[in-house]
Design a protein around this nucleic acid. Structure first.
Lengths: 328, 328
DNA sequence: CTCGGCAATGTTTACGTAAACATCCACTGG
DNA sequence: CCAGTGGATGTTTACGTAAACATTGCCGAG
């Protein structure tokens, strides 16, 4: 910076003003400084900048393995949205979802070059970890369920699940089976709860819940069991991958979709339109979730907001060929 | 830091030594300092650290949309591997893959808190962008083809494509059709080239190349055309998503897989084992690619290496139910 | 003409850390 | 018993920036 100042014949402070776009600099001097910067290939040093300003212009994102489509899309949206606000995004991967690992990630946070944090993960492990959060670091949690402890942005999972179940009931099915996600997942839990509540509200019997682990393979295994039950004419799977496995199992067992069994998924991954048959599913707007996470955390930083709440992003039913009126 | 020093009754330098795990500090003083740090909730300021040390312990990852599975897995592996080396990972999303955007990302890089860069993207746009790279920032490119201009880590795409084609030829098919990725993609290009070369080396006729855009939907459209050609008994698709769409099209047109047509994909995404039928495909070890990217860039930083080269990660044929001996 | 006021620019300083150098002290070998 | 040695710790300084304050010079009102 000093070199630039010298070359431009001004003080370093003026260089700083130019580099930050401050007013109160003549057009002439500004041009001079710009020229000098270009000539010397000057780049502001972000470490010094951060030190001086006390902020990094960086958001940290804590996430487990990026294996689920939802997390990935959310992350992508966060990165894009953060960039629009002039913020960079730093990834803080938590290898193993154990309490220790989460605590570790949270405490490492303190010495990380990060102004605020967005957490994309099931909240279970967060409960005990809250203590070690460095003060002054705002947090927003995506895809979770702890509105009273954290600021949360999430898709309206309950609403989506309700729509899915109602869609099948409207098609004349007596009841709807549910292939749920793993027990540890809050998202799975909320979808399962909404499924149960909706059936109950409609006065239908609730079939036993079948559990998978989000993977297509687990959907396949569950499907093999469901295929043998002639009463099962409609299945709501907690994500599209499991629906894929389910479709394969039903096909292998000679149960036609949607003629014999209707299947509805959750997520609307791009591939689901090409399943056999194309999958009716609940679309989630992850881009919106990511955007809201960033804006939420930035506004919390500005206003130092301490109050928590939950923002829900609506879902949308995407009707394709895997669901049909019951024929029996 | 000064507060900690005072509380522990030592100098700030000693605190620094403890906080960095340097030798030459008595066990007693170390314990004292640690206690003081804990009591005051001291966290080293990474901005000051970076300023003093001249490095950020952070890797930048430039990437287009995280829409392809490969990029995501690579990114994940990079994040994990970087964490193991004590490095954080900052995401630099490039929204639109235009030359301007890429140039912009590269020049923004200079003022970003990043010691080195890993680029995950098609190399086309990199060529003209190289100029604006700040000096001293090492670059490794994943999934690309510019071994002479950059250090590259990639899966052995040519080898994988060759294995795929040979597998189908070994099953007795006269020739193999290819559903390629988009024209702009180097990965697509290399797979297509290897397909052509392998056919030629085996003395087979080369059917016209069919182009998709990686999406399942494009695979479906291509499949509708291929299904009508009775000569087409074996298809090598450049990724698994397009294979999914292809399978649907073939199914709709009454062409059985693998009885009438054998299909082999590329990537081995988790879902491919649950396709109808389960997809034979070429497995890529993205985790290894990510790991090698990180280690490559770190070693270049240490040694200031200027020489470029390409590291290839081998692929593996995963045989499932979508390929079979030709019956005609 | 003179002085207040304001816009443009310069000077000083502090941000938190760690390298380089300085100091202190206990112990060893001659 | 003393110089020498080396380990433990303290002191000084600089990293690059931007806030706070100081200075300059110009303009217009009185």
């Amino acid at each position: 910076m000093a070199d630039v100042a010298q070359l431009a014949g001004v003080s370093s402070q003026t260089v700083s003003r130019v580099s930050n776009g401050f007013p109160g600099v003549t057009e002439d001097t500004r041009a001079q400084v710009m020229a000098a910067m270009r000539e010397l290939g000057y780049r502001p040093n972000s470490a010094a900048r951060a030190l001086r300003r006390g902020e990094f212009r960086t958001l940290g994102v804590i996430t487990f393995s990026l294996s689920t489509m939802g997390n990935i899309r959310t992350l992508e949206a966060i990165a894009t949205s953060a960039a629009e606000h002039g913020y960079a995004v730093t990834l803080l991967p938590v290898a193993v979802p154990t309490q220790d690992e989460v605590n570790g990630a949270f405490s490492r946070l303190g010495e990380l070059a990060v102004d605020a944090v967005i957490v994309i993960m099931e909240i279970h492990l967060l409960d005990a970890a809250t203590v070690s959060l460095p003060p002054g670091v705002q947090v927003v949690v995506a895809d979770s369920d702890a509105g009273d402890r954290y600021t949360v942005v999430d898709t309206d999972q309950a609403g989506g699940a309700r729509d899915a179940v109602r869609h099948l009931l409207d098609l004349g099915h007596d009841t709807v089976w549910h292939l749920a996600g793993p027990e540890g997942s809050f998202a799975a839990q909320r979808r399962a709860n909404a499924w149960r509540d909706t059936l109950r509200a409609a006065g239908r019997v609730t079939p036993p819940l079948v559990r998978g682990d989000w993977s297509a393979e687990s959907g396949y295994r569950a499907g093999l069991r469901l295929a043998d039950d002639p009463d099962c004419t409609a299945v709501f799977t907690a994500n599209d991958q499991m629906a894929l496995g389910l479709l394969r199992a039903l096909h292998e067992r000679g149960r036609r979709v949607p003629d014999d069994v209707s299947v509805i998924g959750f997520d609307d991954i791009p591939e689901s339109a090409s399943f056999l048959p194309p999958l009716t599913t609940i679309h989630q707007d992850f881009a919106e979730v990511g955007r809201l996470c960033v804006e939420g955390v930035l506004s919390k930083m500005r206003e130092g907001g301490a109050e928590h709440g939950t923002t829900l992003v609506p879902t949308r039913l995407v009707r394709r060929a895997s669901t049909a009126r019951r024929r029996s």
